[in-house]
Design a protein around this nucleic acid. Structure first.
Lengths: 327, 327
DNA sequence: AACGTGGCATGCCACGTTGCAAACTCGACG
DNA sequence: CGTCGAGTTTGCAACGTGGCATGCCACGTT
């Protein structure tokens, strides 16, 4: 067992309270008392017991980051930034991975984490606004990423419709006309995908083009393999001259399919991705993509957690289209 | 404030202890008492206070995973597996990110986490065995990855020397003779890099080739940009016919440099990486690599944490060479 | 009628910490 | 010389939980 305040107190010949005062830097402690107590602390290797502190303060300094999969590059990069910024603010991040499983998401929403965390940053995959509204847990919650419908919680996201329009506009501006998309979600649940699709359609229509159903390819998940598969299917019907992929991972998978079929990017087919993950910067050719400001997202989300109690807000983080070599 | 055992007790008209018995599934609780208490629990939305439980049991169910950067794909994939396996075992993982900073690593080793975690999985970058030996903290610790010198802690790693020899042997077997490496660490600290270099040299010598100093390229970190840079430098002196990169990220950076210089992989230059990250499976061409069994690493490390108290062991996880299209 | 037994419920306490308020010391001031 | 107050130290209680031991009751046995 580790040394407790009491052990230190006995060792230094003072009261428990005085040791506590030293540990917490209380002002009115005589210099030599402080020195003596500190010596005992060092000698006994005393470390404050965080459980006891937490019990006293009902505050843990922990926040949970809930994501479908931490090894998906977008979430990994977001997690890295969240952890870093949280560290600066004296918070520690605990990772919960749902694998996109509805039941696991629901459990976490409804307080599986108990009093363990001071707040939850939640990147939903399967749960719907209705599930959020039914929440009884009182731990502050901030949603990461798009969601629609009126959910009574803060959420931080970029403007997906605008971003998708910019991506599509860029493809149109470079002369492409047969523009496909990869990343439509079969279930209507994923709001980000829906908004990106909406933006794409809006921009096509604004340009005077009618959407072609066959060019809007669904995927099950957002992995490279899904993009690869969808691209192959797309090529089987008609070869588009551009593909707007709803994530960079899908785009990288699609590019591999194109390479295997001997098609050149961007000469035969232009590609735009979404997320600006590190891999896209080093792919050959380098990927044009919509870049959400991940530092801002993490930072704004932590702000929102800290500011809870106020009426829920929708917070828009900045994004930008980064043109590289695939368009 | 959330409901406490006492609130539930009052609401149900029983003692606090009885509620506790219900919550913990104690045998001797009358069925209708149990029902009544459960109803009160549901109505009040009672959740056990983990801090209090922890204080009582001196066990948190948390373990820390300490890595240089969580968004480096290898660590992201390792973290994903660790989190998943830990969940199965009733543990929650908390991520600490050191950015490879010596001071941050030292702090974590010496108990910054206090009594918050039941164990630490530590993937060191900057700290040396001596720092480990000087550790006073009593929280169980398991090192992930190579380290040499006698450190009095468990560690889990693959056989880096053997793996590097296999990679080199494979390149030799495909007829390559001017084999360079990228990933040597300028400081002698990183043991993995040192062992991979040793394996490479051993295999060359066993084949009757003398190592060429100029072909052993150092890097500062293990990012794509480092591999890119190192490859460019390598091309400025002499074009090797193969490069063994100490991580897949370095390899992907190197491949980008080769593409820019108009060199073909694998025709002009063969590439072998190390880590088997997802990106390498979808790069064009797909990357030949040494694949450490990450599930085994995570699983063995958690076993080792659970089994602490016994004399420290070196645990070897399996690996295999996966031949794809870059060789 | 006394006794034993098994089922069930409860009170007390400790886990390690800190807030609160009181108590004590000592020099300065009227 | 008494009083005041700043500086310093302390004891007590409480945060929410669960281990322990004990108490109580109904029922069956001797």
């Amino acid at each position: 067992m580790n040394a407790r305040l009491r052990d230190v107190a006995e060792h230094a010949g003072v009261s428990v309270r005085t040791v506590s005062n030293v540990v917490n830097g209380f002002r009115y402690v005589a210099p030599d008392t402080r020195t003596r107590v500190q010596a005992s602390i060092d000698e006994l290797g005393y470390r404050p017991n965080l459980a006891a502190r937490t019990l006293r303060h009902s505050r843990t300094g922990l926040i949970a980051l809930v994501v479908p999969e931490i090894d998906s590059p977008y979430f990994a990069e977001l997690a890295a930034r969240t952890v870093r910024i949280a560290q600066h603010r004296g918070l520690t991040v605990l990772i919960d991975q749902t694998d996109g499983d509805f039941e696991r998401e629901r459990l976490l929403l409804h307080g599986k984490r108990g009093q363990l965390v001071d707040g939850v940053l939640f990147s939903p995959w399967a749960v719907a606004p209705a599930d959020l509204a039914a929440r009884t847990d009182t731990v502050p919650l901030v949603l990461l990423g798009e969601h629609d419908g009126p959910a009574p919680v803060d959420h931080v996201a970029i403007d997906n419709v605008a971003a998708a329009r910019e991506a599509t506009r860029h493809l149109l501006a470079t002369g492409r006309r047969r523009i496909a998309v990869i990343g439509v979600q079969p279930r209507t649940l994923n709001a980000s995908a829906r908004q990106r699709l909406a933006g794409y359609r809006q921009e096509l229509e604004a340009f005077g083009l009618a959407p072609v159903v066959d060019r809007e390819r669904p995927v099950r998940r957002l992995h490279r393999s899904d993009g690869y598969q969808a691209m192959l299917e797309l090529l089987d019907s008609e070869t588009p001259d551009a593909v707007f992929c709803f994530t960079d991972q899908l785009a990288l998978g699609a590019m591999r399919a194109l390479a295997e079929r001997g098609l050149s990017v961007p000469d035969d087919v232009a590609i735009v991705g979404f997320d600006d993950i590190e891999d896209g910067r080093y792919s050959v050719p380098a990927l044009t993509t919509v870049s959400p400001d991940k530092d801002q997202i993490a930072s704004l989300a932590l702000d929102a957690l800290a500011a809870q109690g106020k009426p829920p807000r929708s917070i828009i983080a900045p994004h930008e289209l980064i043109v590289r070599a695939t368009t």
